[in-house]
C-alpha cells in the first residue's frame, strides 16, 4: 500500500481489501462469498476504468497485478475469477467474447454500453453531427473526437454502444465488408 501511495499519479491505488489474504480464496459460505464477489466486481471495474482497459483473457489475467498480489503472495484462481466475471455479465458490466461456452475471454464495460450511447449521442447533438455518416474509425480515433471520453474506445464496446443507439432509433448502422468499415448516421431523438 505504501508503494501505491508513493506513485499515485501513474499507478492504480488498490483498496485495503486487496491486502487481505482471504480475499483471494473463494469463500465457501454463501453470504460471505456474495460480499467477496461484490468487492471483486467493484475492484475490477475501477481498475479497468483507471487503466482504460476493456478486454480480458482469464488465463492471462490471473497473473496481472490485479489478481496477483505479490506483496502477500496470493493470487486468484481462474475458476474463481470466472465466477466473478459471470456475475459481472449478469449485471451487464461485461460480456463473454470468443468461442461460445468456452468463457475464456470477456469484455469488461466499466461504463455500461447504454451510458456510452448517451455520451456519444450527446456529443453528436452538441456538435451538430446529425444526419452525417461516420465510420467507426473516425468515431474512435478521428480528430473530431480527441477531446471526448470515447476517443480510443475499444471497437467492440463502441459497436455495443451504437447498437443500443440504433435500438433507440437514434442512429443507423451501415454494415460494410468488414467490421472496420461500418458506418453510422445519427438522428435527432424522436
Amino acid at each position: 500500500m505504501t508503494t501505491t501511495a508513493a506513485s499515485m499519479d501513474t499507478e492504480f491505488q488498490f483498496p485495503e481489501i486487496y491486502n487481505f489474504p482471504p480475499f483471494f480464496t473463494r469463500q465457501p459460505n454463501d453470504s460471505t462469498w456474495k460480499e467477496q464477489r461484490r468487492m471483486w466486481c467493484d475492484l475490477i471495474l475501477s481498475y479497468y476504468k483507471y487503466n482504460n482497459l476493456s478486454s480480458m483473457t482469464l488465463a492471462e489475467a490471473v497473473s496481472d497485478p490485479l489478481f496477483n498480489n505479490k506483496q502477500i503472495h496470493r493470487s486468484l484462481r481462474v475458476d474463481t475469477l470466472r465466477e466473478v466475471v459471470e456475475e459481472l455479465v449478469k449485471q451487464g458490466n461485461a460480456c463473454w467474447t470468443g468461442p461460445k461456452n468456452t468463457r475464456d475471454a470477456c469484455l469488461i464495460f466499466w461504463r455500461k454500453p447504454e451510458a456510452w450511447a448517451s455520451i456519444i449521442h450527446q456529443w453528436a447533438s452538441e456538435n451538430g453531427m446529425f444526419n452525417m455518416v461516420f465510420t467507426f474509425f473516425e468515431l474512435a480515433n478521428g480528430d473530431d473526437t480527441v477531446e471526448q471520453e470515447f476517443h480510443g474506445l475499444d471497437p467492440l464496446t463502441l459497436r455495443r454502444a451504437l447498437d443500443v443507439l440504433q435500438g433507440q432509433g437514434k442512429a443507423q448502422l451501415f454494415v460494410g465488408t468488414s467490421d472496420e468499415d461500418i458506418g453510422v448516421k445519427f438522428f435527432h431523438s424522436s
Binding site: 489474504p21 482471504p22 480464496t25 469463500q27 503472495h73 496470493r74
Partner: peptide, 22 residues
C-alpha cells in the same frame, strides 16, 4: 464459517481463518 463469522485463506501453508471482514 457457516455462521459467516470467519473467512478462510487457503494457501500452501494450509487453511487459516480470519475474522470475516467481508
Amino acid at each position: 464459517e457457516r455462521a459467516a463469522q470467519v473467512c478462510r485463506d487457503e494457501s500452501v501453508e494450509g487453511v487459516r481463518f480470519y475474522s470475516n471482514v467481508f
